[in-house]
Amino acid sequence: MFKMEKNTPIKPVETQQKQLYHIKVNINGVDYEHDVEARLLLVHYIRDVVGLTGTHIGCDTSNCGACTVIFNGKSVKSCTMFAVQANGAKILTIEGLSKNGELHPIQRAFWENHALQCGYCTPGFIMQAYWLLKENPNPKEEEIRKGISGNLCRCTGYQNIVKAIMQAAKELRSK
């Protein structure tokens, strides 16, 4: 589904115990630089190192999509990548979606259509919908259902999520 755009060279940092790698990542328009272990998952980097906890973890097999972020313009499950792979990347997370305090049309549509209950899967769904609508601004219901089938929700039965994405699509097209 996703291919690395470019391989920015990574510089090893010598420490006492483990080899760390120096990475630079832009998340939601902010530049971050950290020394990280090679095995650190991107989702743990985003949550525990950068401190953006809106991206969630719901499984350990890349099935649930709670950790979905936009990575160089493409939707990615951030539990399937290492932080070092994000060196030089531009990442958008749920925290970066609303601009100047104004909700993104997808966020608003989720609110208006009761497309969330416990909210745990919601950031992943919203980010996936963001990518989906960029790829296909005028999706049919079936295409939406297929497009979000990599994300799991236990509360809503999906009906209102589909409805919300339909509404957001319409609104984004009219912009």
Partner: peptide, 21 residues
């Protein structure tokens, strides 16, 4: 009525136990 809990949950500003360190 639209839910009062949603603004925090759709913006990533909810606080779940795993977010607390």
């Amino acid at each position: 009525v639209k839910r009062k809990e949603d603004p925090r949950l759709i913006t990533g500003k909810g606080t779940y136990v795993a977010d607390i360190t």
